[in-house]
Design a protein around this nucleic acid. Structure first.
Lengths: 139, 139
DNA sequence: ATTTGTGCAAATCGTTTGCATCTGA
DNA sequence: TCAGATGCAAACGATTTGCACAAAT
C-alpha cells in the first residue's frame, strides 16, 4: 500500500542526506513531509508522533530536528519569542508571523523583493536574509 | 552638573510615556539612552546597573524593559536564539545579526528597501516588517 | 492613604546533556 | 560487532510570577 511506498521514499531521503533511517527518524520525516509545507515546533511534532502511535522522546525529536536542519532538509525560522519553528520549505522565502496565535506561514510566491541589499560590514559575508512580516488580526 | 540635567530629561521622558519615574527606571533609562543606540539583553543591562552601583533585581530589569517597550521607548528585536534583545532605536530600520558572537547591529541608513510588500492575508493587517541580515565572519 | 513598583525566591518554559541501553548496517 | 541512536531524567538558561515590603503621588 501507499504507506510503504512513502516510507521507502523517506528512507532514501534520509540515506541521501547521510542519516541512518531509523524507526524514529522515518516516522518523524513522514509526519513532516507528508502534508505539504509546515512550520512546526519540537513540542507539536512530539505530540503528533505520540498521536500517531510512534513513541519518541522529546529529546530525540530535538536531536532529529537539528540533524535534519544540518542536513538541509529543514530550515529554522527566526521568529521572536522563545519557541523555535522548523520549516519544511528550505527554499528562499519569507514569512508572515501572526501575533496572538503565534503562527508562521509562508509568504506566497515571491511577494517580497528587496532592492539594494546593504553591503556586509568589513570582513563579513551575508549568510541569509530573513524577512518576517508581523501580522495582527484586524478588528 | 550634567548628571542632574540628564536625570531630569529622563524623568520627563518617563512621565510623558505614562510611567512613574522611580529610582530604578530612571537609572535604567540613563544607561539605555546615554550612549547612543544600543541592542542590549536584560542580563547585560542588569550587569551594567550593578556596575554603576544601582542595585536592581533582574526581575525589575525585565519588567522595566517590557514596560518601556509597551510605552514605545524600546523595540524588541526578533533574532533567533534564546535571548531577547532590546533596541533603543525605535525607528523603522533593519538589523545585521552576527552569527557566532550573537551581536545585533543596525543596518546603517536606509540600506535596504523593499518593493512589493505582499498583501496581508484576509482580515489581517501588517504590524511591522522585520529584516534580519545574518552575517558570518569571512575566513 | 492609596496606588504602583520592587526584590526575592520559587516556578515555568523551552531546550540540552549525560549516560546507560538498544538497534541498524 | 559496534558505531551510532535513543530514552530518561536531571541540568540548564532565560524569563515569569507570587507575594510581602517599599516608595511615589
Amino acid at each position: 500500500m501507499r504507506e510503504m511506498q512513502r516510507q521507502r521514499e523517506v528512507q532514501d531521503m534520509l540515506r541521501t542526506a547521510g542519516l541512518r533511517p531509523t524507526r524514529q527518524r522515518v516516522a518523524l520525516a513522514e509526519l513532516l513531509y507528508s502534508r505539504g509545507n509546515r512550520h512546526i515546533s519540537a513540542e507539536l511534532l512530539h505530540e503528533e508522533a505520540e498521536a500517531a502511535d510512534v513513541p519518541v522522546s522529546l529529546a530525540t525529536v530535538y536531536n532529529t530536528l537539528h540533524q535534519f536542519t544540518e542536513a538541509g532538509l529543514l530550515r529554522e525560522v527566526a521568529v521572536e519569542g522563545t519557541k523555535t519553528y522548523f520549516d519544511t520549505n528550505t527554499d528562499d522565502h519569507h514569512h508572515f508571523f501572526i501575533e496572538g496565535d503565534n503562527r508562521v506561514i509562508d509568504v506566497p510566491g515571491s511577494g517580497v523583493s528587496m532592492t539594494r541589499l546593504p553591503e556586509a560590514p568589513e570582513g563579513m559575508e551575508i549568510v541569509r536574509v530573513d524577512v518576517v512580516i508581523r501580522l495582527r488580526r484586524k478588528d
